[in-house]
Design a protein around this nucleic acid. Structure first.
Lengths: 338, 338
DNA sequence: TGATTTTACGAAAACGATTAAGTAACTGTT
DNA sequence: AACAGTTACTTAATCGTTTTCGTAAAATCA
């Protein structure tokens, strides 16, 4: 509650002098500076963010837009890790993190953009969301520094997990293990899904691998029940696959259950691979083979680039960062002899 | 960027009038009010949070303190769910959520309390943290409205998962399934751990269940490797338990792996139960028996009570809320015949 | 020594809101 | 008609900073 005014009174100098002393400005005598600083410390002074922001238009606060839909956002393992890393990196550079309100039912709510401006965020990170929502478009199209994760927009900063390479590596890995009948249950349509699917087919072509149409199915992300169903369908085929790729690790658990239920063994009878590299996958038996996305790097890059864009807009020229993941071998993809 | 000043200029009234009109005060004519509101809408006006906060000392922003240590905080399943629920409830009541900076390495960082006051949080929620950290103590002891989760402080608001009842219910459930040789690998020492352990022994006594000293071990929370080791130790005993309780679901996976490695089957040869009720536990095979903590309720209560304390300090008299969980039966605890 | 530059500080405006107090114009009462 | 009471608005102070500009004193220079 001590303000600069209080300090100025005690020190017998003006508020302006206190301000300059505390912000290490040149326009101030060495002695006075130290005296003021010492007094400030003794009085337990800390600045008032609101007042500072009001004056400087800088809040050192970043907005985070993660959707709030059921089973997503904070409780979504992949995004939680990205956010955690983002937060860490931002905090290390002196920025705080505030959520952009996702509650769309509030009567007097503002749009995402208005909310961001209301709070005066210096920048915004967007992830895990329906990017086609007009409010998101508005936010992305605004003058606010924005970084999007796993979705690119022309002229905007984005950090992308390398889904093309990821799927290529994963499929190649499986192929190298000798699998030739490979099925792919992909997620619901989205930019990420399209990239993975395209890469899947492209890689298959390069490997001269034939993918029967029946081998490719769709199941929503993180939907174990759907994955379970699709797996059953695949295994009921006349010529079933020897390996199934899933939309993500979580969904793969649904598939694994279906497989076990049929009395088949992983990886002896059938192989499976997930996508994401969520923590629990490394702690269950058998360890899940998956493409581990580098959430730490994704979050850190997003924060770093965004802050760079905020602090030196003229030098921030890189519009896309693509972060590679890597195959985590695990134990769910077995070797097959031709 | 339109301010009240701009609106006042367009409408030909004073800024005060605009302020009153927009905040629905009585001291204003119906016509003018509507006119101002309409103009504000047309000009795309939104308030400036900093200015408002500076004047009113209210930010409608809540601070969240979740530790940042490796593998905790946001990426901790239980707390992520609590936070998600807290966020939802707070947002529904018009509050935003900002993290209190946990980065202790920053050179110029403020203590938790100073940071909270710097940002002007109306209140703070604390969870998942070393409550004995002097900075936490300082925060809890401050005049700021605070709600702590899973840890109580005299005279402070807290929301607690009912660990006594939880452990009692879980142990009783296992007992009712016929188990009499029950081991308990508990988490590292903490308020929560103590409650569970105490309840474990108390319940055992009530059930006239004898717990050999060797049946009770310690392994850090969420540490699969430690759980694995302790499980092996338990199973190597001359008279091994028929059921093992773990510190939490995640840790139980380590135990389950140890069991599988020994060629034992769950629940035929040995039963296990976790604690928490994390999502993935319901999607693996066999479904994990566990005590499902009501994260939704915990988060919602925390937000609700905290906001109540903020808005009507004189009426907020309830200092503790205890939220019961429930046994999720799963499939990992089998019936045993005497 | 006198002129000029530098240094170190202060005065005051501004950021965008809120709010107490003041006031002019009505309305109603007797 | 005179007075009080109400209504609808304005004025101005204020919150805690930052920052521009002004200026007195000290330092430098010729």
């Amino acid at each position: 509650m001590t303000s600069m005014k209080d300090i100025s009174a005690v020190c017998g100098v003006s508020v302006a002098t206190v301000s300059k002393a505390l912000s290490n400005q040149s326009d101030i005598g060495e002695e006075t500076k130290e005296y003021v600083k010492k007094t400030a410390r003794e009085m337990g002074y800390f600045p008032n963010a609101s007042a500072k922001a009001l004056k400087t238009k800088r809040t050192f606060n970043l907005g985070v837009l993660f959707v709030d839909e059921a089973e997503s956002g904070l409780t979504h393992d992949y995004f939680a890790h990205v956010l955690d890393s983002f937060k860490r990196a931002a905090e290390a550079r002196g920025y705080d993190i505030t959520f952009i309100n996702g509650c769309k039912t509030l009567e007097n709510r503002m749009s995402y953009l208005k909310h961001a401006r209301y709070r005066g965020f210096d920048g915004v990170v967007i992830a895990c969301i329906d990017f086609d929502d007009p409010e998101v478009t508005e936010l992305v199209g605004s003058r606010l520094p924005v970084v999007t994760i796993d979705r690119e927009f022309p002229g905007r900063l984005s950090v992308l997990s390398d889904n093309e390479k990821g799927m290529r590596d994963l499929l190649t890995f499986v192929w190298q293990k000798g699998h030739r009948r490979i099925a792919y249950i992909h997620g619901a349509d989205s930019a990420v899904t399209r990239k993975r699917v395209t890469s899947f087919y492209q890689t298959a072509k390069e490997l001269q691998l034939e993918i029967p149409e029946l081998y490719v199915k769709e199941a929503a992300y993180r939907d174990t029940a759907a994955a379970y169903e699709k797996t059953k369908e695949l295994l009921a085929l006349e010529n079933p696959p020897t390996c199934i790729l899933y939309p993500d690790d979580f969904a793969s658990f649904g598939g694994i259950n279906a497989i076990k239920e049929l009395g088949l063994r992983i990886p002896e009878n059938i192989s499976v691979a997930g996508y994401d590299g969520i923590r629990v996958g490394r702690h269950i038996e058998p360890q899940l083979t998956t493409l581990r996305q580098d959430t730490r790097q994704i979050g850190a890059e997003a924060a770093g680039r965004l802050i760079h864009l905020i602090e030196e807009p003229e030098h921030a020229a890189i519009w896309q960062v693509i972060v590679p993941g890597e195959v985590f071998e695990g134990k769910t993809v077995g070797r097959i002899r031709g």
